[in-house]
Simulated assay, not measured.
Amino acid sequence: MKNILLPTDFSDNSWNAIKYAISLYKEEKCVFYILNTYTPTIAHSRFMAISDHEKMSKDIVRANSEKGLMNLVWKIKSKYNNEHHSFVTISSFNLLVDEVKNIIETKKIDLVIAGTKGASQLEEVFMGSNIVRMIKSIKNCPVLAIPSNFKFIRPSEIAFATDFNRFYTESELRPLIEMARSFQATIRIVHVQYEIKALTEVQQFNLGMLRKYLGELPHYVHTVSELNSVSKTLEVFANELDIHLLAMLHYPHSYMEKMTREPIVNRLAFHTQIPLLVIPELGMNASCFSVNKEASENPSRTLKN
């Protein structure tokens, strides 16, 4: 049974993400934790007494949050009525990202699925400030970002964007592998290069390990030239190969980090294209470090083993 966290602010884009999640896992047993956070804008010091008016305001906001969650669950059940799915609502007086991190730990969440905002909101960075904060802050759970207008398509074509410069652990790749197996998807490994050139021996080693982890899953490697920006290149690649979901690891100097630092004008076209699965850097144990160190120091010997 999977534990899926669905943050919601009762907006259309969060409802679209919920619909995607329900459709994505319609054949699997899941517990969906539906979270709404509220933080009334009450300015007071912790040294000041809270007035009756402030208490009443907080009570009203909490009641609205709880009622909204109750109505949302009723809406889901009336529309989908899936016996494999159960729902738990959480109304929390807290900041969204802080509460998401807390729930991931306490409820053993396998995946966070959240909606992204439209590209027309220029003040929002990349996909919306909240989801970017989640991606940057969550270190132990993958996040699946669903564009506001994206209609569910069974992900039979999944792109995994990587530069092969980092050693992969099996635990980090597990969300990608499980999703590909569940939907019998083909994985398109896409490597964006500013200038096309042969892989280094370390990159070849990391590619070899990646292929080993993917095993019998159908997968192909695509090397593409960068078009103005990483995000633009991935957008074109996704369109040409009819990609239904893009996955990438998030670690220092990764594609994900590069994309969040690109000028906003370069990111707008990519902003609302396809769902994005961001897998956090889970860390490597000592054996992983030793393997990668050996590969760096003597790649040719390691590759022969």
Rank of each mutant, 00 (worst) to 15 (best):
A198Q: 07
E172R: 08
N140D: 06
Q203N: 03
K2W: 07
E123S: 12
F205G: 15
P142A: 00
I60E: 05
K304Q: 02
T8M: 03
F32Q: 09
K77C: 06
V31P: 00
C30T: 08
D52E: 12
I22R: 08
L282K: 11
P280S: 00
D163L: 06
I113L: 03
L207N: 07
E170G: 03
L69S: 07
A17K: 07
H250L: 10
N305E: 08
S296M: 09
L6T: 12
A63M: 15
F237S: 15
E99K: 07
S290Q: 12
A185V: 12
R154V: 01
E294S: 10
F150Q: 02
I135Q: 10
V265R: 09
P7H: 15
V132W: 07
K79W: 05
K151S: 15
T116D: 01
L69Y: 07
N130A: 04
S57N: 14
S129D: 01
A119D: 04
L276E: 02
N298H: 05
V221N: 15
S229T: 05
K304S: 01
I279H: 06
F237P: 15
S231R: 11
E257K: 00
S23F: 12
K77E: 13
D242M: 11
F270L: 00
R188Y: 04
Q273Y: 13
L5V: 01
K77V: 09
N36S: 05
R188D: 00
S300N: 04
G128C: 11
H191F: 10
D242N: 10
D59P: 09
L111R: 11
F237C: 14
L144N: 09
F150L: 08
D59H: 13
S45Q: 05
S182F: 09
S171Y: 08
I279T: 06
I22H: 06
F164W: 10
K136Y: 04
E157Q: 03
